[in-house]
Amino acid sequence: MNMSTKPKLRIATATLAGCFGCHMSFLDIDERLFDLMELVEFDRSPLTDIKTCGPCDIGLIEGGLCNAENVHVLREFRANCKILVAVGACAINGGLPAQRNHLSLSMILEEVYHAQHGLVDGFIPNDPELPLPLDQVHPIHEVVKVDYFIPGCPPSGDAIWKVLTDLIAGREPELGHGLVHYD
């Protein structure tokens, strides 16, 4: 088939409660980005700065859910993406942010904004524009159906490339030894 007439797949990406490390790792596919751009175009993503997600073929989610806005974005992606992929440890099991899960949220806010040395007049931010934090950090599969997972902190550029190229080619993604890492 003539590639130029084949419509490009649309991909959206987002970072929720993550550190952008998975996005940086995505950029580690280096010059393969040029090959990728022949096949796909980007919708909402930190790479395009588009703010809302339209209908897409593939959505990549980095990070877990630590506040109400994360949940909103995740639902927007699920509603618009045919295939939703959890990328990285935080999207898959909450990762580092979820290490607060055994502590009460009020205790954490108290510690961070009141109790610490030098915070005599500290106050807990309450601007209505700030999304409300959740009592615990959740991986995304606890809230929406997730089709595929790329584990790793972060997953290597090669692992992300493998899953993307499998999906674009219509194959069932498979990682195997060396590409599957939880660390």
Partner: peptide
């Protein structure tokens, strides 16, 4: 972890207990 790699465990699938230990 290595057994989970061996058996292609891509996600924990269930809801986390997040116990306090």
């Amino acid at each position: 972890q290595a057994t989970a790699y061996e058996l292609d465990m891509m996600s924990p699938h269930f809801d986390h207990f997040s116990p306090n230990r």
